[in-house]
Simulated scan of single mutants.
Amino acid sequence: MATADTMLQTALREPAERITLDLRTVTFFDSAAIHALVRLAQQFPGTLTVLPSRQVRRVLDISGLGEQTWLSPT
Rank of each mutant, 00 (worst) to 15 (best):
S31A: 14
L48D: 00
L23S: 00
R18Q: 15
T27P: 00
R13Q: 14
D5Q: 15
A2Y: 07
D5A: 06
Q68C: 13
G64V: 09
L21H: 03
P52N: 03
L71M: 10
L60R: 06
P15S: 13
L8G: 01
M7H: 04
T3H: 14
T69C: 13
T47Y: 03
L71P: 02
A11Q: 08
Q68S: 11
L51P: 07
A4M: 04
I34H: 01
T47D: 03
T27Q: 14
S63I: 04
A33S: 12
T27E: 13
A11T: 06
I62E: 06
L37V: 03
S72I: 03
R18L: 10
T47K: 10
A4Y: 03
T49E: 12
A33P: 05
L51T: 07
R58D: 10
L23E: 00
L60C: 08
P45K: 03
T10A: 15
F28N: 06
Q68F: 05
R57C: 01
E14F: 03
T10H: 12
T20N: 01
A16Y: 04
E67S: 15
R54G: 13
Q42N: 14
T6P: 06
E17M: 12
T20L: 08
L51M: 15
Q42S: 12
D22H: 09
L51K: 00
G46I: 11
R57Q: 09
Q55W: 04
T74Y: 11
A16S: 15
T69E: 15
E17D: 14
W70F: 11
L48M: 11
T20S: 04
A36Q: 05
L37W: 06
R58A: 15
L71W: 02
E17I: 02
P15C: 08
L8P: 06
R39C: 05
T10P: 00
S72T: 02
G66A: 11
I62F: 06
R24L: 06
D30H: 07
R54W: 10
T3I: 12
R18E: 13
F44D: 01
S63P: 08
V59M: 10
E14D: 14
R39Y: 01
S63G: 11
T74G: 14
T47W: 09
P52W: 07
S72E: 10
L48H: 08
T3L: 13
A41L: 03
T49S: 09
H35D: 13
A33E: 01
T25G: 09
S63A: 15
S31D: 08
A33Y: 05
A32V: 05
V50R: 07
A11W: 01
V50H: 04
L8M: 05
S72V: 03
T10R: 14
Q42Y: 02
F29T: 06
R13C: 12
A2Q: 15
A16W: 04
R58T: 11
E17L: 14
T3F: 13
T3C: 10
Q68T: 02
D22A: 07
M1S: 15
G46C: 12
T74M: 09
T27K: 14
L40T: 02
G66F: 00
L8F: 08
L71G: 02
L12S: 08
Q42K: 11
I62N: 07
T27M: 12
P15F: 00
